[in-house]
């Protein structure tokens, strides 16, 4: 049993954001998806935009994102979130529109929709979760799977025969329509705070209609990486970040 602590004379300094529903997520223990969801919900609360935000959920592990955000949401076909968001924002320029997509959805099957939405400079926030693997389908190789990384479809480790892991931030940054590109991580508390600041900026940018904001969140997949949550967060430091360097790639 834990200890009993009196709450008398104490005030709440952090509580679950209102923009999350009561649903318990299906994410595995320690999964960064939950953290990323929480940060977006905190931002929605802080900006007071629950009634003016429409989110687009992908196909992949975060397919059920619409069950977790207490927001109007659309679930898009695999890879097409940026196309759906394009229509939403063009028809409702006063609304905050964001997509939430994994690496398979955004960089694999949806590569074309992602590139063209960014190239058009759609005034949306794209939240890209890069955990270097297909989570929902059981740990297959993703476009961002690292060289040598073993997955259920690269059992001997990925080689360049399957292509090199794709660095989306670097690619997207070259497009003039894009305003803000940052790669963040959620494996340590300081990085989580930085990720939140980046997301906040990416949402606020929509107020100024100056182009696409693209936030890549380097995240973990403890179950499919076959690691404990703590070990998976360390692997982000050891293997992911050396290949996917954190930082601001563009801020105009």
């Amino acid at each position: 049993m834990g200890i009993e602590v009196s709450l008398e004379g104490k005030e709440i300094v952090y509580k679950r954001p209102k923009a999350l529903t009561d649903a318990v997520t299906h994410y595995c223990p320690g999964c960064g998806h939950g953290t990323a969801h929480r940060l977006i919900a905190e931002i929605v609360d802080e900006l007071g935009i629950q009634g003016t935000t429409v989110g687009v959920a992908p196909v992949g592990c975060s397919v059920f994102a619409y069950n977790y955000f207490d927001l109007d949401m659309q679930q898009a076909a695999h890879g097409r979130a940026c196309a759906v968001a394009t229509a939403l924002k063009r028809l409702m320029p006063d609304k905050y529109v964001f997509t939430y997509q994994g690496d398979g959805d955004l960089a694999g099957i949806g590569g074309n929709e992602t590139l063209h939405a960014c190239n058009r400079g759609e005034n949306i926030t794209i939240v890209f979760i890069n955990n270097a693997i297909y989570g929902m389908t059981g740990g297959q190789m993703a476009p961002t799977t690292l060289i040598g990384q073993k997955t259920t479809t690269s059992p001997y480790g990925r080689t360049t025969n399957e292509g090199n892991p794709i660095r989306m931030c670097e690619l997207i940054t070259t497009l003039p329509g894009v305003r803000y590109v940052e790669r963040v991580a959620v494996n340590t508390a300081p990085r989580v705070r930085k990720a939140k600041a980046a997301l906040l900026k990416a949402f606020k940018n929509q107020q100024e209609n100056k182009g696409t904001s693209f936030i890549e969140i380097v995240s973990n997949c403890p179950s499919n990486w076959k690691m404990t949550p703590l070990a998976s967060n360390k692997w982000i430091d050891d293997a992911m970040i050396p290949y996917f360097p954190l930082g601001v790639f563009k801020d105009q």
Partner: peptide
């Protein structure tokens, strides 16, 4: 009104999904 030449028919139909899902005649 909104006219947009999409990058493909795949994008077009999904833009239509987004527009219709927000209650616009599309």
């Amino acid at each position: 009104r909104i006219f947009l030449q999409a990058e493909s028919e795949v994008a077009s139909i999904n833009m239509l999904y987004g527009a219709a899902g927000a209650g616009f005649k599309a």
